[in-house]
Design a protein around this nucleic acid. Structure first.
Lengths: 222, 222
DNA sequence: TATTTTTTTATTGTATACAATCTAATAGTA
DNA sequence: TACTATTAGATTGTATACAATAAAAAAATA
């Protein structure tokens, strides 16, 4: 894999898993040194993250982890409420044994992570579930969009989420897969809509402040 | 406006309006000279266009105008068929006098462009109509997604479109605005779905080959 | 002492230089 | 002649140097 691609994934992961909190400054020099690459390479990664809304770049002031506004937060969740249910029809259409295996596999990992109270994995697996489900619709364009939305949701939750909203009640995903496996598209759509509405409803508009970060330590432990 | 932002828009416009056809090579040196900027600046623009799928960058081989596959083409249109109708409800909810003025304004320009057989404007205005409509839903996140999809549709049409599919029968947009102004959400949704399905149905799977381009001449005439 | 101005420092923006890689042209061999 | 190997040229990938800007610290003035 290309080096900058790897760095991109590490940084995205750090943001999505709340190791780098919204508002935290991302100085090019420190990151360049951390990843043993020139500033050119880091800038490429930062610009990509900026285009995908995980980072904001202010001219002559540098990059920060994006801090979604309340408005943006709601729009991201509203988008998912609008989009994810309409993908269900296509998921059911393409449903087969491997879909079942794939999704139940993720659900199982989610339940394990929940038992171990592994917050990091819970966030990642919950996003993975929604992304995988979207890609089972067969439409790669939509799948990418949903993937971005779920990732942005993690940022939103970092700002406005309470503890219980982090993993979006993993256990329940099991119920959805049951419905899909019975080809019950209608109920599954309704379930998905309510599921996402519940996440949105769990958002609280309290903000905590960022603190200084040692990038080398951070990325050596992840 | 920042210089690279301007260059980005010029290049995107050239691609979307079919002045730069899919498959055309985009050498950094020539572009840098054309826009009187260093390769660094051009690379930034090219990477952005690549992330948004208007350009493909192959390692050590450089950038080309993206040439969507038949599969991708269908998925882009399918995405629009899925997404644009569900936005109608929110458009109707937020509908007011200014929405009406805005959309009828665009429709009027579309009809003018059609009379003058101005292909360039027809493409641009048709995309603008769909984008504006989406932004009237009040959801900026969805609006951006739809904007990208309409732009990508232009690329798709450059590869698989026939003459009549270019501007997606502008005249008809008028009918949609009429429905919206009467708050007829249901019929408007159906109309939109059929409208987009018609565009998809008009696609033909014939491919023509790219030819060499003089970038300086091209961008001095746009 | 408080406030403004100046100077210094740190950080980003841009261009260029060099290295790595691919393309093609040429030369060599069967 | 056809095919492979080697070399030369062109193009991209990456790092670094310098310029421009912003932030912080120090000095000057009221």
């Amino acid at each position: 894999m290309r080096k900058d691609e790897l760095i991109y994934q590490q940084m995205l992961k750090a943001i999505v898993e709340h190791h780098l909190l919204p508002g935290v400054r991302l100085p090019e020099d420190q990151l360049a040194e951390t990843f043993q690459i020139s500033r050119t390479g880091i800038r490429k990664v930062l610009h990509r993250l900026a285009l995908e809304r995980f980072v904001t770049i202010t001219p002559n002031k540098g990059a920060h982890v994006a801090k979604p506004t309340a408005e943006e937060a709601q729009q991201v969740l509203d988008s998912r409420i609008l989009v994810e249910p309409v993908l269900i029809d296509d998921v059911v259409t393409h449903w087969d044994e491997s879909s079942k295996t794939r999704l139940y596999g993720i659900v199982q990992q989610e339940e394990l992570a929940e038992q171990n109270n592994n917050l990091k994995d819970m966030i990642q697996l919950s996003a993975l579930f929604h992304t995988e489900l979207a890609s089972l619709s067969g439409n790669q364009v939509m799948a990418e969009f949903v993937s971005q939305l779920t990732l942005r949701s993690s940022l939103v939750i970092a700002v406005f989420g309470s503890k219980q909203s982090v993993g979006c009640d993993c256990g329940h995903h099991h119920d959805l897969v049951d419905m899909l496996d019975k080809r019950e598209a209608g109920p599954a759509k309704i379930w998905m809509k309510r599921h996402l509405e519940a996440i949105k409803a769990s958002l609280q508009f309290t903000i905590d402040k960022p603190k200084s970060i040692n990038f080398k330590d951070l990325f050596s432990t992840i």
